[in-house]
Amino acid sequence: MTARSEMDERMLDQAIAWQAALEQDDADWDGYLAWLEADPRHRDAFDSIALVDSAIADHRDEIKTLLAPDREMPINPLPNRWRPRLLWSGAIAASLAMLVAVPMLRSNADPVVYDNGGTANRSLALANGTSVILAPSSRIIVTGRDAAAIELARGEAYFDVRHDPGRTLAVSAGSYRISDIGTRFSVNLARGTFRVGVAEGVISVEAPGIARPVRIDAGHQLVGGSGALTLAPVDVAQIGSWRRGRLSYTDAPLALVAADISRYSGKAIIVDPSVEKKHFSGSLVIGDGSKLVDDLAGVMGIDTQSTGDAVRIGAVR
């Protein structure tokens, strides 16, 4: 075994460790980004592991069916599922190869849906070198063999796009369209409210009712909804802060905040007309999601009323 192959194997093991670590609530995102930027091959290694991870998660039932009864083994995604020698056992590797090869033969127009119905973030590696982190209760739809078109159908997603001047990539969210040439940004779509924040690079956004795209530089966010578009500076640390266990906002519509809380708390959050025009700036600790409504109410000085699995927030009576 050559020194290069030993290093490649070590990098894959590190990527496997990071893939598992990023699924934890207390994930070290700063450490992950430092590791990612330390060597260009680290991103390739992580993308490879994340791609296989997604394939296993999406096709675990089909893989189980293809496995011979006497060779079955647990394949449900778990935080500790990444054991390289187990992963590449002949039965799973062969079954996975059959299942992954099929999408490659489809028409470029065939969409692929990635859904995160769990309570933890989900990491994805797309064919064009784009990495995506899906928040809970979120969904994206990817079209094209090179994943040139991505739709955020609901929830929130963080995009890390490798710079490639020759590539065209568009991310749509509702009636908004984001054009990107290599950057990091987070997009949120909830209850007709749209927010995109740029952590690195530059993007442009096309929106209803505007003649030309809006340019958004790093450290800025664009918020849209029932009213006019609002472009404003934002702390880069706030962008995608949900990946690190916090919901952070700068002048965000209360409807958007309520939708985020609903995803993490499992409760329907109803915004009373008495407070629907309010905006929120601040940070909330996600935890298990159970304290988010009370924390928001305490900070904003608003009232909450619980009924079953729903909570109404409104003005104090």
Rank of each mutant, 00 (worst) to 15 (best):
A207L: 08
G224L: 07
E276Y: 07
P111T: 07
K278R: 14
E200R: 05
E62I: 06
D294W: 09
E151H: 11
D39V: 14
L152M: 05
R212P: 08
M7Q: 14
R312E: 09
A170L: 09
N128Q: 12
L189D: 06
R81G: 05
W242I: 15
A34R: 15
E23R: 07
P208C: 03
V316F: 10
V52Y: 04
S226V: 07
L229Y: 13
L152I: 06
G225Q: 02
R244M: 15
D272N: 03
A109Q: 12
L124T: 02
I75T: 05
V285G: 00
L296I: 09
L33K: 10
V275D: 01
P79F: 02
L126F: 02
D295K: 01
L134T: 10
Y176Q: 09
T143S: 05
L99Y: 03
G224K: 02
W82F: 10
H220L: 11
V202Y: 04
Q238P: 07
L124F: 02
A268T: 13
L67F: 01
L66C: 04
L292N: 03
D61G: 06
P136E: 08
N128G: 11
P111G: 02
S274M: 04
D251Q: 13
D47I: 03
M98I: 12
S89T: 08
A255M: 11
V198H: 03
A135E: 13
D260S: 08
Y249G: 04
N108P: 01
A211F: 07
L78Q: 14
L36I: 10
L105S: 15
R191W: 07
S5W: 04
D26T: 13
P77W: 01
R244Q: 15
N121F: 09
G289F: 06
Q19G: 02
R184M: 07
V100H: 01
A259D: 10
R263M: 15
M7R: 14
V205N: 02
V271D: 04
G90W: 09
A147S: 06
R41N: 00
Y264A: 11
D303M: 07
I140A: 00
